[in-house]
């Protein structure tokens, strides 16, 4: 029985098929988990396949592969969503608010105590953080009809915390200043 099987395996056609099956079933299976990969069936049960190098359909595959890093935004005449590319360099104002790696303005809302305390956090500040704090506080106090607002500056990590939810206000303000 064993000799018979060996004789079948040694025929050149089956040899080629075996090579193919190995490249299909062992090489790729290494990437999947051992448990999820199927056991190798008798060779006759596999359909005949052809391997296409540089097929015309490869462009559809490439379309499905994600970019490695976040793509740079391209210049457009208009941005209907309200998003704007950063234009300010911070040279005239003395401070600078960098964009995040997703090209967004780093203004966030932090809620604590089940939403009872809301903090607006401006991140990624460089340069004269105290001047920016004065500017932002003025904007916030104007929207509060002159009522004072509490802020906290962390110079080490380049953050300003503002008491209350002023995310939209400050984001629009920073965008209007080109940050």
């Amino acid at each position: 029985m064993a000799a018979n099987a060996k004789a079948i395996v040694n025929t050149p056609l089956l040899q080629g098929l075996k090579q193919l099956v190995r490249s299909l079933h062992t090489d790729c299976a290494r990437l999947s988990s051992f448990r999820s990969s199927r056991e190798v069936q008798p060779l006759e049960e596999y359909p005949e396949v052809e391997v296409l190098h540089n097929p015309p359909e490869w462009k559809y595959v490439e379309r499905l592969l994600p970019p490695r890093t976040v793509p740079q935004p391209v210049a457009k005449p208009a941005y209907p969503s309200g998003w704007k590319p950063q234009t300010a360099t911070g040279q005239e104002s003395g401070y600078f608010v960098a964009r995040t790696k997703n090209h967004m303005v780093p203004v966030y809302l932090n809620t604590r105590f089940r939403g009872q305390r809301r903090l607006t956090i401006v991140r990624l500040i460089q340069g004269d953080i105290w001047a920016l704090e004065r500017d932002l506080r003025q904007v916030v106090e104007q929207s509060r009809n002159g009522k004072l607002c509490a802020t906290r500056v962390n110079e080490l990590s380049g953050q300003i915390h503002i008491h209350g939810d002023y995310v939209d206000l400050l984001r629009e303000h920073l965008k209007s200043k080109g940050f």
């Binding site: 994600p66 970019p67 490695r68 890093t69 976040v70």
Partner: peptide, 9 residues
């Protein structure tokens, strides 16, 4: 730099 800018962060 790749880690700071990766798409699937």
């Amino acid at each position: 730099l790749y880690q700071l800018h990766r798409n699937d962060a």
